[in-house]
Every structure is written in C-alpha cells, then in structure tokens.
Design a protein around this nucleic acid. Sequence first.
DNA 1: ATGGTGGCGGTGCCA
Length: 263
Amino acid sequence: MKIATWNVNSLKARQDHLLRWLKEFTPDVVLLQELKGAEDSFPFMEINAAGYEAAVVGQKTYNGVAILSKTPIVVTQRRLPGEEEDEQARYIEGIVQGGSQSVRVGCLYLPNGNPAPGDKYDYKIRWMRRLYAHARELLKTDEAFVLGGDYNVIPEASDVYDPSKWTRDALFLPESRNALRCIVNLGLTDAFAALHPGGGRYSWWDYRAGSWDRDEGCRIDHLLLSPQAADRLTASGIDKTPRGWDKPSDHTPVWCELKCGVN
DNA sequence: ATGGTGGCGGTGCCA
C-alpha cells in the first residue's frame, strides 16, 4: 500500500491539484495538512467520488488535517493527547485496512514555532514532547503504524539547501532537531531517509525568491514508521510533480510503500 | 534587499 503525506496549503485553493494527483499517483492512504477550513467546508462528495473515504479535523482559517483512504477509516484520535486546552486542529489518527493487515496512521501538522524564542516556539517544543509521549504509548502495542505529516523540522544540515541561513529558524534550531531525534530514537524509521541517504532532497520550497526554480528547499515532511511498519517498507520517495503545477502548494507529497504480506 | 510570495478575509496574521 502507498501512503503519502502532503501539506496542501488550503484545500479550497488546492482541490483541483489534490484530485488530479490522486488520479495520477493513486495512493492508498493520504495524510493532508493545512486544510485551512472547517469540517463543513470539506469536499466529501468530490473525495468520495474519487474513490476515497475521508476523516477530517478542520479549523477555520488555520491548520486542519485529514486522512484519506481507499478503505474505511476507524478514527482513534482527533487531538494529540497531553494538553486538553490545545484547540488547534493539528492531529488526527485512525486505523486503515491494508491488504490482509491493518495499519494505524497518525496525521500531524507540527507547529512552525517561529519566531524563536517566544511563545510559539515554546508551544512547538511542548507539542513535540506530547508527540514523543504518544509515540511511546503506540510503540507498546507492537503494531504497524505510520506517524506522518508536516513536522516543520529539518532533521540534518544536508536536508536544507543552505543551513547557514537557517541557524536561528525554529525549523532548524538544535532544540527542535533534538526533539525530533528523540522521537526517532524511540525506534522509528524515517521512510525517506532510510532509503535515500545523502540529503539534498526537499519537500518544501519557499514561494519567494525563485526557490523552486533554484531547487533551494528543505525536507520537513516526514513519514516515521514503527518497527513493524519498517519491516514492510519497500520504497519511498518525494513526488515533485504537483509542486511544478500552476498555483501550487509550497509543499509536495512524500510517500512510502508498505508491502501487504506478513513480514 | 531588514526584502520577497501566498492564503485567508477583507486587516493583519501566519507560514
């Protein structure tokens, strides 16, 4: 099964791109971020007509996440546990059927955190600690799961075109990178990095200053696999195609393929 | 160059 993550930067503005990409790439499961709309504005009819179920946590103007799946979705979380007063729509989790097995997928939109230092950066770090705690709970189940989304963290210097320009940015500060490393070190596998060492491959390019044309981006969208999911990993990649379309999102899809059979 | 672009919503905020 092909599982992808894509920050669409407004689903209303990107609906045509999404439907075109679903048709051309034929993913089984898609994790969407930055819908920028409430749940009642979600295009359920069009998504269903394209062959996908949808589970949505929406929010007016900001954030918003969704899981699309060709097979039914059993929603297990609509918020990231650990901070009840956090109303931002940044996490949804569910179980989908993949061949003979089921896979749990968590779709996350991790806070950007800029400017740092400040309240927004503190919120980002708290959110990452909550994600760490939740991942640790999920690992106790010994099941196949994927935590995917816009992590808003550049893991390594090789994952950004010019690290010296990012030293004070919340996406590249040591505390952010260390918090991501702690999550990975619980025993998760970065599906893209595991099969494509060396860096220099990006999932986001700034709209400004011709970043896309110069291929000056960074890799901030990740699919982290539990050991049981990593055992089934056969391929992964970054599909740059929709970033080249007219009026694109600033992000492009990152995907992985898990074989359906047993180990 | 203390800039630049895009989405939302109708002004600045957020990324």
